[in-house]
């Protein structure tokens, strides 16, 4: 949100939580090696900053490439399912079933098939981001008012014209909701597949600092990963505003 007036309530709540956390650590309610204080987490982040950035580059590249292909695939599937009811009948149940398979379970398989490079990570991101895209966009395409289609038909519009003038613009809000969810999944997906084998990336960094029991670095990287997701989602919001100027004028 580009709102000038940032909502004050969540900011206060977060500040309060941080203060409680810091106090708990300072008064040693919890042993310091188990729960590092927020200040120590920040220190760890600063100390490892360049290393974190190197790993982040890899993770981001996997996430973005996977997202790109995931969105593309989801888009094509949604349009096909919308255009040909038989495709929807055949594909939709499989899509839903595929979502019940946990990503953590297929990641090792992908590594066995495609080795330790970037490929299995990108494939996993495609798999997790594809579903929210396809389903979201399909819902959007099919939400169009039947009467609007009737009107277009009475004006002898072609299928492509109906898609271009009516369906696609109407589906844009759902499209962007899908992208937002896919973005969140994609970063997590990339990190998970890195846990299970790889040479670099934030997931690999995580497993390493876990092994050396560096709790402060663990916390630092966890916050860093969620910050990346948040930034990407904010970026999607900006894109959506640009793509749908009419939505603000209400």
């Amino acid at each position: 949100m580009m709102n000038k007036k940032i909502n004050i309530v969540p900011v206060v709540v977060i500040m309060l939580l941080l203060i409680i956390w810091q106090t708990a650590c300072a008064l040693e309610w919890v042993p310091g090696y188990m729960l590092p204080s927020p200040i120590n987490v920040v220190k760890a982040f600063v100390a490892d900053f360049s290393l974190l950035m190197d790993h982040a580059k890899v993770t981001l590249l996997e996430a973005v490439l996977g997202l790109f292909f995931g969105i593309l695939l989801g888009f094509v599937c949604a349009v096909l399912m919308d255009t040909f009811p038989i495709v929807k009948k055949g594909l939709y149940p499989i899509l839903v079933i595929s979502q019940t398979i946990p990503a953590v379970a297929i990641a090792p398989l992908l590594i066995l098939w495609f080795s330790y490079g970037m490929t299995p990570k990108i494939i996993l991101v495609v798999l997790v981001s594809f579903f929210p895209m396809a389903v979201g966009l399909l819902d959007g395409l099919q939400s169009v008012d039947e009467d609007m289609i009737k009107l277009m038909n009475s004006m002898k519009a072609t299928r492509w014209q109906i898609f271009k003038y009516v369906k696609l613009p109407a589906a844009l809000p759902e499209f962007f909701s899908g992208v937002r969810i896919a973005v969140a999944y994609s970063v997590v997906g990339a990190v998970i597949s890195e846990w299970l084998g790889g040479f670099s990336g934030l997931g690999v960094y995580m497993t390493r600092v876990k092994k050396s029991l560096a709790y402060d670095k663990m916390f630092a990287v966890i916050f860093f990963v969620s910050a990346i997701s948040l930034i990407l989602m904010a970026l999607v919001n900006v894109l959506q505003k640009k793509a749908m100027p009419w939505a603000q004028k209400k």
Binding site: K150, L151, S154, M155, Q161, Y165, W246
Partner: peptide, 26 residues
């Protein structure tokens, strides 16, 4: 024949003039 349905069915993402010109654009 030109057909106007009960609802106005204007495209929310097009400006007023683009909406009016829709039959020509089609």
């Amino acid at each position: 024949l030109s057909y106007m349905l009960q609802k106005d069915l204007l495209l929310p993402h097009k400006t007023v003039i683009e909406n009016a010109a829709l039959p020509l654009l089609l």
